[in-house]
Design a protein around this nucleic acid. Structure first.
Length: 412
DNA sequence: TGTCCACTGGAACGTACGGCTT
DNA sequence: AAGCCGTACGTTCCAGTGGACA
């Protein structure tokens, strides 16, 4: 026991005595809003100009912002809002803001819940009709007489599922309010989502449009340099590593979030190794690790039937079936359910689960027609068999069937 | 050129659950 | 306590489909 304790102390000592890589690693986290946002000066100016009337207690125009992930949309909006709120406090203007990430929040009801929270409105987390929640939100807003800037990030995620009713209601809420006002900022990764909007919504939402184009590799380098200055110790980061981070992220549609992730993970790997410099090799390892971690997390958190579908495809791939089709996967899946004593879902449902797995990038499922042999999906794994075997061998359900040989495959 | 297969995928509906309002 | 609500997850039904084959 004593020995064991010493060993652990040893690990901590090594960590403490090893070369110090970071001064402040939080600076590299995606939700950190820096004091300086390089190459986004135009967008900052544009959004600030549109929102400025708010300080005069007039409603600013609604704004629609679009650009791919990691192009700085959220950071710029938060940056401008921070300053706007600070200024409004100085001059005593009644301005509040509410930031909601629609993809994380998930439903219209919960979006309204978050908006309510920002003006101290308590709403039960379930039980009310959405229209009732909206009415209460409207009343509370009017009562407070506050000008609320609502930021709906990743709005496309919400609209694809629930339609544009919420935005429609929010854009016309000013017509009914006496004292309160709402300014809307919608952020989307997907430009095509505008096609899903009702023309009435589009005309009021698209009062102002701000576009964030992807960063180029040199721009990403500037951003990384800026952050590296405050997050890493001097002389830790080799110039080549920083260039590689920006080049890798630029290849992935100029994603700054990705670049910062790479830098942070590369730093952490260096730290764990106990060496003094972050090399290009560390960056390459970081890239591999980020992807693996993502996949492992997705696999571990899948619902049981999705796991079994994936196991079926894994088992088929192990048996050298290159392109599995829906019907065959379903047969194997039924057998696995029987083995585990679980009730199987319908083929329609499994077809849907396969589509969901396709979206997460774990599978590739392509609809093909086999002529008179019908229409189906050709399915293959998009990740390595080794990862699946590793994760599913440690899962209480799937470990029982991961090495199983289905009878239905014997005569194929 | 028409037939036919093995599905796809949309839509409507059912069930269970937690929790609010009346 | 009854009725209603949103949400999650599922089933059932069925029109539609691309292309090999007779």
């Amino acid at each position: 026991m004593q020995n064991n304790k010493d060993q652990i102390d040893d690990i901590f000592d090594k960590f403490l005595q090893g070369p110090k890589i970071f001064t402040d690693r939080e600076v590299l986290r995606p939700d950190y809003v820096p004091d300086n946002l390089p190459h986004r000066e135009d967008q900052i100016q544009q959004i600030a100009k549109i929102l400025a009337p708010v300080l005069d207690e007039a409603r600013g125009s609604n704004i629609f912002i679009y650009g791919k992930t990691g192009t700085g949309k959220t950071a710029v909006v938060k940056y401008v809002l921070n300053r706007l709120i600070r200024r409004s406090n100085e001059i005593g203007a009644l301005v509040e803001n509410s930031y909601v990430n629609c993809r994380l929040v998930g439903t219209v009801y919960r979006v309204l819940l978050k908006l309510g929270e920002s003006i101290d409105l308590k709403i039960p987390f379930t039980g009310l009709a959405t229209s009732e929640v909206f009415d209460r939100f409207e009343d509370a807003l009017d009562l407070k007489g506050v000008l609320l800037i609502v930021v709906l990030d990743e709005i496309d995620a919400l609209i694809k599922v629930y339609g544009d009713n919420l935005i429609y209601e929010l854009t016309r809420v000013n017509e009914t309010l006496n004292k309160g006002k709402v300014s809307l900022i919608c952020i989307s990764n997907d430009l095509l989502f505008k096609d899903l909007l009702d023309p009435r919504v589009l005309s009021s939402l698209g009062e102002e449009e701000v576009v964030f184009r992807p960063y180029t590799a040199p721009e990403l380098k500037d951003i990384l340099l800026e952050r590296a200055k405050i997050s890493f110790n001097d002389d830790v980061l080799m110039a080549g590593s920083l260039n590689l981070c920006s080049a890798l992220a630029a290849a992935e549609h100029g994603d700054a979030r990705r670049a910062l992730d790479l830098l942070r993970v590369a730093g952490e790997l260096t730290e764990r190794e106990g060496v003094a410099k972050v090399t290009e090799e560390h960056v390459r390892c970081a890239q591999k690790k980020i992807e693996e971690d993502r996949v492992v997390l997705v696999l571990k958190t899948l619902p049981i039937h999705s796991k079994l579908v994936l196991c079926s495809i894994y088992i088929m791939s192990r048996a050298k079936v290159k392109n599995a089709i829906t019907g065959d996967v379903y047969e194997v899946y039924i057998e696995l359910c029987n083995q585990l004593g679980l009730e199987s879902l319908t083929q329609r449902r499994i077809s849907g689960l396969i589509n969901e797995l396709d979206i997460t990038g774990i599978l590739n499922a392509r609809v093909v027609s086999l002529g008179r042999y019908g229409r189906t999906k050709k399915i293959r794994l998009a990740i390595s068999n080794v990862v699946i075997k590793d994760v599913f061998s440690n899962d209480p359900w799937t470990k029982k069937i991961i090495d199983y040989s289905p009878k239905c495959m014997l005569n194929k």
